[in-house]
Amino acid sequence: AQQQENSEKVAKAQGEQFQSLTQIASGQADIAKLQNQYSSYNIRNGMYTIVAAQSGQVVKAQKAGIGEFVKEGDMIAEIVPDDVKYAVEMFVRPLDLPLLANGQKVRFMFDGFPAIVFSGWPDVSSGTFGGEIVAIESNVSVNGKFRVLVQEDKDDRRWPRQLKIGAGAQGISLLKDVPMWYELWRNVNGFPPDYYQPASGQKNSKTSK
């Protein structure tokens, strides 16, 4: 009888142990569920603020207002970076395209900055800024002209810091210094002007067979 009573006590204790283990497992499951909810709420709270990849100024908002739905990949705003390298976009006629090349020097007159230009006297002109061609597109634009990108010439005076994206500019391509008789001969025969060609820095090598 005593042995049977002890067996019942052991079985009861084991049952209570298993019940306690079940409660522990249930508690751990509840903890994991609460942790997942906390992580989800934390992520949602972070979505109220959109952080850009770099610092800059918002120039145009595509989504304005409260409660608007935004799909993945939709543009929300346009940002102009603080540290930006400006370039001038010029459009050139197909007739003048062969006269341009990468690295060629260009003079600019920016809107809002007074300039005095004397045709044929670049050294006397004042208020112009230097540029250098960095890219010439191979396909024609919708306006029937080719797009040319010109960046700031590091060897010339710096462009005004007050320049903003969308400001107007007028470009002037530099001509070579030629004798007066050559210029008269060119105009009489209707030949195109000779533009500066950038120095390649490489000499033609002769190969012997």
Rank of each mutant, 00 (worst) to 15 (best):
Q2T: 10
E5H: 00
S7C: 06
K9A: 09
A11E: 08
F18T: 01
S20R: 08
L21E: 02
S26I: 01
I31Y: 11
A32L: 10
K33H: 10
L34P: 00
Q35A: 11
S40T: 11
Y41P: 02
Y41H: 08
I43H: 06
I43P: 00
R44P: 01
R44W: 11
N45D: 03
G46L: 09
I50E: 08
V51L: 03
V51M: 07
Q54E: 12
S55D: 15
G56E: 02
G56N: 03
G56K: 00
V59N: 03
K60V: 02
A61S: 14
K63F: 11
G65A: 04
G67T: 01
F69R: 14
K71I: 00
K71G: 06
G73F: 04
G73Y: 12
A77G: 09
V84A: 14
V88W: 02
E89K: 06
V92Q: 09
D96H: 06
L99G: 03
L100S: 09
L100K: 03
G103D: 06
M109E: 01
D111G: 09
A115K: 00
V117I: 15
F118V: 15
V124Q: 13
I136D: 04
I136N: 05
N139S: 14
V142Q: 04
G144N: 13
K145F: 14
K145M: 15
F146R: 07
R147A: 05
V148N: 03
V148M: 12
L149W: 13
D153F: 01
D155H: 15
R157Q: 13
R158Q: 15
P160W: 13
L163Y: 11
Q170Y: 06
V178H: 06
P179N: 14
E183D: 09
E183N: 04
N187D: 10
N189M: 14
Y196C: 00
A199L: 04
G201M: 02
S205P: 02
T207M: 09
K209A: 11
